[in-house]
Simulated assay, not measured.
Amino acid sequence: MAESRVHNQFKLTSKNYVEADVGEEVTLPCHLSPDTSAVATTIRWFKGTECIYLYKNGQVTERSGYKGRVSLITQELERGNVSLRLRDFRWSDTGFYICQVIHGEQKEEAAVGLRDREGKCSRTPVMFLNT
């Protein structure tokens, strides 16, 4: 019994941060290592301390303000990809996100920062005033 429990152990891997321009779609990367199916796991994504996305038993719950803007790449769950896709990136989306995966008694977390590209190649016009 202990042998199968060790076999099922996994870790989460991610990047330190990703960048996006306002209005873009951005993916917050997070993967199970070794590649293990995440279909039967509970996946939570937090921004700060707020749970913004919950996947459990195939059911999804999204926090208001993120409804229709966040999703997992469900066809990739079988390969351990639990990355969060965020559509219509907004200034208010910048910050740190935590991916949490629970399977049985094992719980792993990984953090990824999301920041604006600081206006580089931004579609938003910028006006400077001389004083």
Rank of each mutant, 00 (worst) to 15 (best):
L28H: 09
Y53R: 01
Y53M: 00
Y53A: 00
F128P: 06
Y17L: 03
C121W: 04
V60Y: 01
V6I: 13
I52Q: 01
V26Q: 04
V70G: 01
K56T: 07
V18C: 02
F89Q: 08
E24P: 04
F46A: 03
F89S: 09
G48T: 05
P125N: 02
E62G: 00
S37E: 04
E109T: 15
F46Y: 14
V39Q: 07
W45K: 01
R117A: 08
R44A: 00
G80Q: 05
N81C: 10
S33Y: 12
W91M: 11
I52C: 00
G58D: 12
W45Q: 04
G23P: 03
L32H: 03
E118H: 11
N130R: 10
V6S: 08
D88F: 12
W45A: 05
G80L: 03
W91N: 12
R123E: 14
A111E: 15
C99S: 13
T131V: 09
E24Q: 13
G104N: 06
K47N: 00
D21Y: 04
S37K: 05
V82W: 06
K67A: 14
D21H: 09
F89H: 05
T94C: 13
N130I: 09
P29M: 05
V6Y: 12
T49H: 11
L32R: 06
R87L: 06
G113W: 03
V18W: 08
E78I: 15
S37D: 13
T131D: 07
C121D: 15
G80A: 04
T124N: 07
E24D: 15
Y55V: 03
T42H: 05
Y66W: 05
T131C: 04
A110C: 07
D35G: 08
R115P: 11
E24R: 04
D88L: 13
V26H: 02
A20P: 09
E25F: 01
A40W: 10
P34Y: 02
M127D: 04
E50N: 14
F96D: 15
A111K: 15
G48E: 02
E118Y: 11
L54A: 01
Y66T: 00
L86C: 01
T74R: 08
S64E: 14
R5G: 12
S92D: 13
H31N: 11
D93H: 07
N130C: 04
V18S: 08
E19D: 15
E24Y: 09
I43S: 00
C99D: 06
S92T: 12
V101M: 10
K11N: 15
E62T: 02
R79K: 14
E19M: 14
K67P: 06
K107N: 07
E3V: 10
